[in-house]
Structure formats: structure tokens, C-alpha cells
């Protein structure tokens, strides 16, 4: 492998996020050695898979050129529905299937409104953010219901030594999404649709269908992740997933997904989500005072994206410089060849 290959890898935004992640982890470890203790890793990794699954859905949708602000509300609505259906006497697996289909339905409605009426997905899903949150409160019937233990929560959140079963579900989701996005025609269509919808359309890609698929997938994954969270804490909370939409978009952007579509990876979104969770934990572990908590988190989010952009730009400069040097070398070679011919 020559240096050019190495540089082109470093230039990838998700790799620079990863470097940032390692630097931050080291910093917080210096601040409090318990930061990387098995107990803390266990706490953070208990929560992180849920957020990564949402970030994956958001990232794919953003790559296709759309947004979903309703994921936080769907994250609460889907598990609340499942719990209430079980309380109504429905078999657990049927309740799970029906609950997840609500996530799919919300994704479909988001896509339908956005695409059919040609309005920005930002607006359509902002409306859905409020609607789904309100439906969650309605579904509680006034007071949050207890968690029905006939639901198979151990299958999704069983606590191993350090990790939970949800980590493996997340890896499964990431693997399938990764294959789909990076190794299939559908993935190519998603990138083309997000990169330049008109061009993709003229190439014969059914861009509306592609976007609709991404909306549905995003709604489904948000609901699935919400279900895992409810299963983990064994309580359906109407407040669950509050502000999650912004955090998922932040995770995707930190991981190198473009706000303008057409660019991004599953790995990037996942590493972005992990970074945010560890930042949050690290700030607490470093014993930063309450008033500074959000300021600290916000600054670190900005620093990480600035760092990310800086590394990418630096990489680009290096590659340009190398190309310039190569061009110079080759033109010198050509010159010397012509000179030798002349002789």
C-alpha cells in the first residue's frame, strides 16, 4: 500500500471521526480512569445500540436526500403500542409485529406526504413529531402502564458480562444495512437519488420509490430501537426518545453523512452515535458541573465536526499536491523522452 492509499483512507470522514473518537476516549480516560472501566463500558454499551439503530435509519434516509424529525416520537409510540396491546390480551409476538408495523406506517405517511405533496420532509416529519408524541400520550390512557413481563425482552436485551443482546441485534441491522447500501443496486440507487435526484430520475431510477423505501426503513428502525429501550428499562415511558431526532442527525453528520444527500456510510453513522454516547458519559465522568453540561456536549459536537472537516480538507490538499507532483514528474519524463529522441 502506498502513501496515496493511506491518505485516501484518512480522507474519509468516518475515519477522521474514528480518530477523533480515540482521542476523546483517551482524554476522558486521563480525566477519570473509571471512564473505561468494565462497569462504565457496560452502561454506555447498554444504551448505545438503541441509538445506533436509529442513526442508521436516519443516515440512509439522509443519503437519499431526505430528513425524518419524527424518529424520537416513533421511538416512544411503537413500544407504548406494544405494551398496551399486550395489556389488552394480545399475544406478545402479535403485539410486537403490530407495534413495528406502526413504525412502518408512520414512515409510509412521512414519505407519502413529502413525495405526494412535494413539501420538504423537514416539515412533514416535524408535523409527525408532534402527532406521534401526542398519540403516545393518548395511548398511555393518562398514566403510563406497567411493563408486561410476558414480552420476550431477554431475547433483545439480555445482559452478558459487558454487552447486552441488543449489541448483536444492532450489529445484525448494521450488517444488513451495510450490504444493502454499499453492495447492492438499491444502495447505488439511494446514493444517486440523494446525490442528484433529477439525474438519477433521468437514468431510469424510480427516485420516489427509493425515497419511500428509506422513509419506511427509518420509521421501522426507530420503532425497533424504541422497543429495545423499553425492553431494557422494563417501562414504557411517554418521554422516551425526547430530542432523539436532533441527536441522530448530529450522529450521522459527525460520522460524515452529508446534510445535502448522496454522501455517507453506515459505519460513519454508527461511530457518530457511539461518539455522542461516550461524550455524554465522559463529561459526567470528568465531573463537569451541571450548568456546563450541555455547553460541553455542544462544544464537543462542534469540535468533532470541525476536526472532521479539517482532516478531510487536509487529505484533499495532500492528494492534490501528490497529483500535482505526479503530473510534474510525468511531464518531466515526457520532456526527457522527447529530448532523448531529439538527440
Amino acid at each position: 500500500m502506498n502513501t496515496n492509499n493511506l491518505k485516501s483512507i484518512l480522507m474519509r470522514p468516518e475515519i477522521s471521526t474514528f480518530i477523533m473518537f480515540v482521542v476523546i476516549m483517551t482524554g476522558f480516560f486521563i480525566a477519570n480512569e473509571n471512564f473505561l472501566s468494565a462497569r462504565n463500558i457496560r452502561i454506555v454499551m447498554g444504551i448505545t445500540p438503541e441509538y445506533i439503530i436509529v442513526a442508521i435509519g436516519i443516515a440512509i434516509l439522509m443519503i437519499s436526500g431526505e430528513f425524518d424529525l419524527s424518529v424520537g416520537s416513533v421511538f416512544a409510540l411503537v413500544p407504548m403500542t406494544m405494551v398496551q396491546l399486550v395489556h389488552q390480551g394480545m399475544p406478545p409476538w402479535v403485539a410486537i409485529a403490530l407495534g413495528l408495523s406502526i413504525g412502518i406506517a408512520v414512515g409510509f405517511v412521512n414519505g407519502f406526504i413529502t413525495l405526494r405533496f412535494g413539501i420538504p420532509s423537514f416539515i412533514a416529519t416535524l408535523g409527525m413529531l408532534y402527532i406521534a408524541r401526542s398519540l403516545t400520550t393518548v395511548a398511555t390512557g393518562g398514566f403510563p402502564p406497567p411493563f408486561p413481563h410476558e414480552l420476550p425482552n431477554e431475547l433483545f436485551v439480555f445482559q452478558f458480562e459487558v454487552f447486552r443482546a441488543s449489541l448483536f441485534w444492532m450489529l445484525g441491522v448494521a450488517f444488513i444495512a451495510g450490504i444493502m447500501l454499499h453492495r447492492s443496486n438499491l444502495g447505488n440507487w439511494i446514493y444517486s437519488t440523494g446525490g442528484d435526484t433529477a439525474a438519477a430520475s433521468s437514468m431510469g431510477i424510480k427516485t420516489n420509490n427509493v425515497k419511500m423505501f428509506c422513509f419506511i426503513l427509518c420509521g421501522f428502525l426507530a420503532g425497533f430501537a424504541g422497543m429495545i429501550q423499553t425492553f431494557r428499562i422494563e417501562a414504557p415511558l411517554p418521554s422516551q426518545g425526547y430530542l432523539l431526532e436532533l441527536e441522530s442527525i448530529a450522529a450521522a453528520v459527525i460520522g460524515g453523512v452529508s446534510l445535502f444527500g448522496g454522501v455517507g456510510t453506515i459505519f460513519g453513522a454508527a461511530i457518530g452515535a457511539i461518539l455522542i454516547r461516550f461524550l455524554e458519559s465522559g463529561i459526567i465522568m470528568a465531573r463537569i458541573d451541571a450548568e456546563w453540561f450541555r455547553a460541553g456536549l455542544g462544544s464537543l459536537i462542534i469540535i468533532s465536526v470541525v476536526f472532521n472537516t479539517w482532516v478531510v480538507r487536509r487529505g484533499e490538499n495532500m492528494v492534490h499536491k501528490n497529483q500535482a507532483e505526479e503530473n510534474e514528474n510525468s511531464s518531466q519524463k515526457n520532456n526527457s523522452v522527447t529530448e532523448s529522441k531529439d538527440e
Partner: peptide
């Protein structure tokens, strides 16, 4: 250290803060 929440009443976040305090 006083640990507050990003969202008033977000119990999942409060639980996480409690667990982080134990880990500290």
C-alpha cells in the same frame, strides 16, 4: 456534581446519569 437532564423529566436519561455516577 449535580447531574441535570437535557429534557425535563426524561427518566431514561436520569437512569443513565445514576448509572454513570455508580461507575464514577
Amino acid at each position: 456534581q449535580m447531574l441535570t437532564l437535557s429534557g425535563d423529566g426524561d427518566q431514561q436519561e436520569q437512569l443513565q446519569n445514576l448509572e454513570s455516577s455508580i461507575a464514577q
